[in-house]
Each structure stands twice: as C-alpha cells, then as structure tokens.
C-alpha cells in the first residue's frame, strides 16, 4: 500500500504543479486504526497529506457532486463507476475530472476485524497475504478473505472503468462470482418470513441518514424524507417510517447502485442494508442485462424505454 500512497502523491503533485487541476480529492491518514478521512489538497506542497491503505472504503465520487472546480480524484473500481454515473446524470463534467485510478483487491471491513479480535480494542491492522490484527488482547493473523468487506468479496469490477492515471498494474478480476446469494435467500422466503427479516434488519436504525449521505447517488436537493409539503414520511423512529425510508431509498438507486458498500460501511448501527439495493441491482441485471456505471454512452434502463423491455409487471 506504501507504493500506492507514493504514486498517488506523485501524480497529485504533478497535476497540481502543471496546473491541470485545482484540487485533488483523496484520503488522509485517519486518527484511529481502520479508518481514513476523505480529504482534499489544493497545493502541490501539501500532497504528502494524501494517503492510501485498505481502509479507504468510503466512495469519493460522493465528494464530486455539483463541484465546479477541475478536480483530480482517487478512484477504486466502484468509485469510478459512480463517477461514470455522475457524468451521465450531469452531476459533474467529464472534461473537468481527472481520474487517478486505483486497482483494488478489496477493502477490509472494520467490523469484521473487530469481531475477529473478539471485541477487544484494535490498535493496529497490517494488511498483507494474511492480515495481522494487533489488539489489546494480543496479536492475531487472519485470512484476508475473512475480514474483507462483504461487497468487495463479490466485486467483479475491481479495476477502474475510466481513468486518466493508474497508480499500479491492473489486478485480476474475480470470475464466477455469485453476486446474489443473499438476495436469493430472501426471495425464497414466505411473506411472513420476509417481514420478520426486514423488521430485524432495520430494528436498530436511528435515522441518522449516514447511508443516504454517504451514497453518491443520493444527491436530491431535498430528499423525500425531508419534504414537508407534503410530508411523505413521519419524523419519529416509528418502524413504518424507518422502513419507508430504507425501501424507497433503495428504489431510487435502482439501475444506478454500483454496490460500493458505502452505506453499510458508514452505518453506525451495523445495519446490512445492501440486501435492499442488491435486490434492485439483481432485477436490473435479470431484466435488462444492466450493470450500472460501466458505460458513458448508454442510458440506464430506468430512464429509457425500449419496445422489448420486459412487461411482466403489467397484470
């Protein structure tokens, strides 16, 4: 990861010195283990603030929304797909963006690591062929796949889909991945089972909206939950309101979600809400053969009409 950091700094310095961009958006090293902070650098002399390791999971495309500057942005595969989304949805202009692509082998999940350490406080994590976890309880080595973020385990676009610079050789893409194992399990449930499943899933939600706010897709000037005339959703922690929020938000992301995992990553209450967006991702794939954020020219299925679109829903 040191090489990645070095290369990001080099590229950032060059771009800023040459005046090609006004700012570089990346990460700076966090004040705690297992988290880094989205950060910008505007002067070439500050590029050493930039940093990279396997805890740079928050989707940086979120920080591009509606910005007018010329920006270089550090982007993993998923981030780059959301940049593509942003371009086709007119949230940024392609010619104002320089993508510093980061081939990615998967981000590590901090909750999985915390669990692996038996809840003992984590002091340091070293990523490698094996992951070394230093906690108050001692040092432990675990397999990388056991502590990789859920969405990264099933990722099939680890390399940036668009980039102007690349910080390393591309990595091998994962093949024959079943992306929808969990969704299929829920699809097979009875109505009552589904109800119970979603009740439990969302029971700890505190409506902080971290999932929505970390999502690059959620850029509506006024989210439907914040609308007051008319007020669609109540403001309390009543479960119907909470479910309405999560379900509708997922629908708003249909055909757009790249499964970057930011929503789950940022949830302070460990809610696994990706099953909702993944169900819609699966439907878009099954019905339209669509994967979001791969093409700068093709329109997403839900903002186009084709005569041969599936029409089974008309009963």
């Amino acid at each position: 990861m040191l090489e990645y950091t070095k290369k990001i700094r080099e590229i950032a310095e060059r771009l800023l010195k040459e005046g090609k961009v006004d700012m570089v958006i990346g990460f700076r090293k966090g004040t705690l283990p297992m988290i880094n902070e989205p950060h910008f650098v505007k002067r070439a002399e500050d590029v050493n603030e930039l940093y990279w390791d396997t805890f740079c999971a928050v989707n940086l495309a979120n920080y591009l929304t509606d910005r007018k500057e010329r920006i270089a942005i550090v982007a993993k595969g998923c981030d780059s797909r959301n940049i593509v989304n942003h371009i086709i949805e007119n949230k940024v202009k392609k010619d104002k963006i320089v993508v510093i692509g980061v081939p990615c082998k998967g981000m590590l999940g901090r909750r999985k690591i915390a669990l692996a350490a038996g809840g003992s406080e984590i002091l340091e994590v070293i990523d490698g062929a094996k992951v070394t976890i230093k906690s108050k309880a001692g040092v432990k080595e675990v397999d990388r796949k056991d502590v990789t973020q859920d969405n990264c385990i099933i990722c099939t676009h680890r390399n940036p889909v668009i980039y102007d610079e690349l910080v390393a050789e591309k990595v091998e893409e994962q093949k024959n991945v079943d992306r929808y194992e969990d969704v299929k399990k829920i699809e097979a449930m009875s109505v009552q089972e589904k109800n119970e499943y979603f009740d439990t899933l969302l029971s700890t939600c505190i409506r902080c909206y971290a999932c929505r706010n970390a999502c690059p897709l959620c850029y509506c000037p006024t989210c439907f939950v914040d609308e007051s005339k008319p007020q669609w959703v109540g403001k309390s922690i009543e479960e119907t309101d909470i479910k309405t929020f999560h379900f509708l938000r997922a629908y708003h992301c249909a055909g757009r979600c790249t499964d970057c995992g930011s929503c789950e990553r940022v949830c302070p209450m460990n809610i696994k809400m990706r099953v909702l967006t993944k169900k819609l991702e699966k439907d878009c794939f099954d019905q339209f053969g669509w994967e979001a954020g791969l093409s700068l020219t093709e329109r997403p299925p839900l903002d186009t009409y084709k005569p041969n679109d599936p029409q089974d829903f008309i009963k």
Partner: peptide
C-alpha cells in the same frame, strides 16, 4: 468539514 457527510451520527 470537507469529509463530513452531514449525517446525524
């Protein structure tokens, strides 16, 4: 404030 998501956490 750059990184802040403006969530309520």
């Amino acid at each position: 404030s750059f990184a802040c998501l403006n969530c309520g956490t």
